[in-house]
Write a protein that binds this DNA or RNA. Sequence first.
DNA 1: ACATTAAGTGATT
DNA 2: AATCACTTAATGT
Length: 209
Amino acid sequence: MSIVQEKFSYMFDKELLEEIDKNKVIKKYKEESIIIEPGQEVTFIPFILEGAVKVLREDENGEELLLYYLESGDTCSMTLTCCYGRKKSKIKAIADIESEILFVPSSFFAVWMEKYESWRNFILTNYENKLNELLEAIDSLAFYNMEERIIKYLSDKVKIIGSLELDLTHQKIAEDLHSSRVVVSRILKKLEKSGKLVIHRNRLILKEF
DNA sequence: ACATTAAGTGATT
DNA sequence: AATCACTTAATGT
């Protein structure tokens, strides 16, 4: 059984699976490697096979804000928007952990929309999920204070990594939340004092998450 | 032993 | 909550 069938068989028709299989390119990305950047033309539809991908909004100065993660079985809704016609990416995507992504030329997008019900369902389901996560990101930004945002960030990360031991620096957290390292350090120190986590260099060990 | 990078902290806005 | 300026601690060479 091919890797496409393993990951996507429950979603797609046999015929669609074969089309994907025939036109696929599979790439591996190491942790922190960039998959796409704002302004880059979208020429492929991505399917996440393994790992986790961070989707970030980035301004012209390179300032970032984490929007959501993509995991196995996901595609990127933001990118798909660009598949009708040759549009440019509005987001930055980087591998959060080592990841494997399958790509199919974006020209198939419109064809499959007409041809396959299972494709339309897949696209809509993904849109719904990512739109919800985008709303969560907005809520977090608008209604949560920094401490709450960091707690959400850490618990999201735990879900993605599947471990309570997170290898990351305060600086990295600050970048994802578009804050500053000093602010993050102070809040983490406070959380450590209240027993929610333990701070090590390049590593956080979470307790109550 | 020294340099580099991560994290801690007081003071100011 | 952000920034500055400085200190302390951990890690690599």
